[in-house]
Design a protein around this nucleic acid. Structure first.
Length: 502
RNA sequence: GCCCCCAUCGUCUAGAGGCCUAGGACGCCACCCUUUCAAGGUGGAGAUCACCGGUUCGAAUCCGGUUGGGGGUACCA
């Protein structure tokens, strides 16, 4: 059996797309599982839409996901590595041109001088006739003299590949036998533009052949292109690879995932605090399953189980809620040092955005880890969760401090008594085990429900009704700041009691 | 229009003729735990396996058709 060589061939015409990332992942998993080689090739022939920034984003995103390739560009703009270099289509133009020349020489392809206007007229006529659009073959039978005449006029022809009648079929690794009648391919198709640059269908085949790609694992949207590719492989005298078409990732309305309806840029998910382990885990399970009930799996665990047989045929809706759940699962599995490191940029961002007054130190983050780890669906949720720790002047809505079952006067009294109890706890022994008992006693003595007292304290100290455990939170805040916030709350609720309560 | 692909709880899926009165997970709802929020635990609702025919002693699983959905139909990738 020949070596297994797979590839991902993104085009830098946009930021790394979730769908591209999943295709890359499936290829990487397949290569890893079978000891094959994973190649990254940049399809940068669409010069008008390519940018170096997008190239950077794609490479960075793939790296971030932990997807590594054995051959291909290492960095944006350069760094090709591997025996089949270059791995950028733009640098392979001579090879495409040579292949086209070869096809031309063997009359498997021919120059086409049709103008856009002619093409448009053809299309309209076909539409009016209710015929499927196809190239009419105007230039298919031009003689050498005809061509010479046009060239003499300075006209440059595009290159069209001759499509012969017949059936083209292939055994898709996920779908089984698929066959197409070549008469439905739309006639002879263009493989090289008039400006000499190759079209995707042509470049991809020339390069896959040259790079000895053995398995083409790609999205289902390429299924109808496959017969063209096969015809090209055959014309080039190269054995065709095994094709495996992955189900599409869908919007909630079951249409192909698109930017308009779903977030599609991997960088967006990174920015929101999804972690690589979760994204990889989730994406792997979108359209594939282990066949067992395992679901929280690392890249290595996925690779050990990956196979094309369990790839789903139907499209899969991208379910962000499930992604969040998996993300939470992975956040809980991270060790302290790791989590702190990953949290830092998000806290930094909170600071930059002005939502907190300073960026906490790694040590500060570490101490607070036990109380936030199980409450983070994403890293980005950290600011909302405990940002109040690093705000100097906390603005608290006095009305919010008053528990549902209490009035303002009771709340003021409760806060005053609680402040006293908390103040009695020394600075050195300001631990939750020291703070909790006296407050429970206080509630007991006054006939208050502990929960109500605690809620008043919680809101007074944090400004929110949902927080990590109260006493740990107060400890994290520190004795002085806790007392200061209580004083401010007592004053505010006191005013509320005088003003609004009978 | 034409070609191709697909079809199991709302969602991701298990299921390769009898183990299925269809399993798991997310989400949802209860309850337990509990100072709030999470996490965790327990339980529940939720799928006439799109529909109709066939094959078979027996079909979610095989075959045909229908319907529905999706993708492709460029000198885009």
């Amino acid at each position: 059996m020949p070596d297994i060589r797979v590839r991902i061939a993104p085009s830098p015409t946009g930021p790394l797309h979730i769908g591209t990332a999943r295709t890359a992942l499936f290829n990487a998993l397949y290569a890893r599982r079978h000891g094959g080689t994973f190649v990254l090739r940049l399809e940068d022939t669409d010069v008008a839409r390519n940018t170096l920034a997008f190239e950077q984003d794609i490479l960075d995103g793939l790296h971030w996901l932990g997807i590594t390739w054995d051959e291909g560009p290492d960095s944006a703009g350069g760094g090709d590595r591997g025996p089949y270099a270059p791995y950028r289509q733009l640098q392979r133009l001579e090879r495409h041109a040579a292949a086209a020349a070869d096809l031309l020489a063997r009359d498997l392809a021919y120059p086409c001088y049709c103008t856009p206007e002619e093409m448009e007229a053809d299309r309209k006529a076909q539409e009016a006739d209710r015929q499927p659009p196809r190239y009419v073959g105007r230039c298919a039978t031009l003689t050498a003299a005809d061509r010479a005449a046009r060239e003499a006029e300075g006209r440059r022809g595009a290159v069209r590949f001759r499509v012969q009648p017949g059936i083209v079929g292939f055994d898709d690794a996920v779908r089984g036998r698929v066959e197409f009648d070549t008469s439905n391919l739309g006639g002879d198709f263009v493989i090289v533009r008039a400006d000499g640059t190759p079209l995707y269908h042509f470049a991809v085949v020339v390069d896959d052949a040259a790079m000895e790609i053995s398995h083409v694992i790609r999205g289902e949207d390429h299924i109808s292109n496959t017969p063209k590719h096969i015809l090209l492989f055959r014309a080039l005298g190269h054995a065709e690879p095994v094709f495996a078409h992955l189900p599409l990732i869908l919007n909630a309305d079951r249409t192909k995932m698109s930017k308009r309806k779903t977030q599609t840029a991997v960088s967006d998910y990174i920015a929101q605090g999804f972690i690589r382990e979760a994204l990889v885990n989730y994406l792997a399970l979108l359209g594939w399953s282990t066949g067992t009930e395992e679901e929280i799996l690392s890249f290595d665990e996925l690779a050990a189980r990956f196979d094309l047989d369990h790839v789903q045929k139907g499209g899969a809706i991208f379910d962000r809620e499930r992604l969040e759940w998996i993300n939470g699962q992975w956040i809980r599995r991270l060790d302290d040092e790791d989590l702190v490191t990953r949290l830092e940029p998000f806290l930094e961002a909170e600071h930059v955005a002005g939502r907190i007054d300073r960026t906490p130190t790694a040590e500060e983050i570490r101490t607070v880890l036990p109380m936030i780890r199980e409450r983070l669906p994403t890293l980005g949720a950290v600011g909302d969760l405990i940002g109040f720790l690093w705000i100097d002047e906390l603005a608290v809505d006095p009305a919010l401090i008053v528990p549902k079952r209490w009035d303002a006067a009771t709340t003021a009294a409760g806060l005053i008594a609680a402040r006293e109890a908390i103040a009695a706890v020394g600075a050195v022994s300001f631990e939750s085990e020291e703070i909790e008992p006296p407050l429970r006693e206080l509630a007991e003595r006054r006939g208050w429900k502990a929960g109500d007292l605690f809620m008043a304290l919680r809101v007074a100290a944090t400004g929110r009704t949902a927080t990590p455990p109260l006493f740990d939170t107060l400890v994290a805040l520190g004795r002085e700041r806790t007392l200061a916030r209580l004083d401010a709350a007592i004053a505010a609720v006191g005013r509320l009691a005088e003003g609004g309560t009978p």
